[in-house]
Nucleic acid binder design. Structure first.
Lengths: 147, 147
DNA sequence: ATATTAAAAGATATTAGGATCTTAATATAT
DNA sequence: ATATATTAAGATCCTAATATCTTTTAATAT
């Protein structure tokens, strides 16, 4: 594998964006719909949504007509909040060569290059709110599933 | 875990830089010395060095006074070559949200942001030759091990 | 011949990804 | 009120990938 985020985190981001889009009008979205909507294993995404719900990055209600949704407060959370909740701070803070002691005063050979990359990553995720992708998705200008 | 590269790849980069530095004067570096020099598990780094040697990113010789070294030709390989050999192209090409079908014409919501990050990553690694870190390491201006 | 060293292959351990099953909550019909 | 259907929450388990360790084999300088 190997990419910027764990698989769990990739699914989490896509799921939150999807639920935010679909629940914009007030309705709730079931697990099956989420799994189908973002091409993820149903039971795996269920577990991820649970965790996100516990951390109040999305909301849920049980029972008939229940499901997941993103309320107006949660809509202003950022993608950085999701990444932090699932993968932690490493992508924003960690050394590219895996050195725990890497720092400004004891830098690895790539310290400054990676600093730029991490900064760009942080800016991108921190400035992207959960709610801001709806329009482009609705217009078919961007996609969060394979087919 | 989760970072830009796999643990294997982090060790590989550090090991190659280390061997390049230590073998600059013509001598060869044993596995134990590499493991100690970059703080890696000895047997694990042995396997990684094997693979790098097979791909001619470093050189080796068996027997007494044998060991690993980087010849003048291999010294001009780049860190991007190491990353490609170990982790493949994904860090340079893959979608940040894990979508195989993500592309210019069917972009994920973060496609353009991630493109910038990947480009920066590629430029950094492609322009960094294996040999270029010796001086800073020798001067104690950068570090490749924990303590 | 012997000691030294990497190559090769395989075994084991750990972690992450994914599946299964049970429990709890709640809307709705009776 | 009660039963039932629907839905998420939670726990547990299985599987696959990754990381690490062990053992054996092959090369080579002396």
């Amino acid at each position: 594998m190997q990419m910027f985020f764990s698989k769990t985190c990739e699914y989490a981001i896509r799921a939150v964006i999807f639920v935010a889009q679909k629940s914009e009008g007030g309705r709730k979205v079931g697990i099956k719909e989420v799994a189908a909507g973002i091409d993820s294993p149903e039971h795996f995404i269920a577990k991820i949504l649970q965790e996100l719900s516990k951390r109040e990055l999305i909301q849920s209600s049980k029972g008939p007509n229940g499901g997941f949704y993103v309320d107006s407060i949660a809509r202003s959370n950022t993608l950085a909040d999701i990444v932090r909740a699932i993968d932690g701070e490493k992508i924003f803070k960690g050394c590219g060569l895996g050195l725990k002691s890497c720092s400004e005063t004891k830098p690895c050979p790539l310290h400054n290059d990676f600093k730029e990359i991490r900064t760009k990553m942080h800016r991108t995720l921190q400035s992207a709110t959960i709610g801001e992708f709806n329009e482009n998705l609705n217009l078919g200008l961007s996609y969060i599933k394979e087919r």
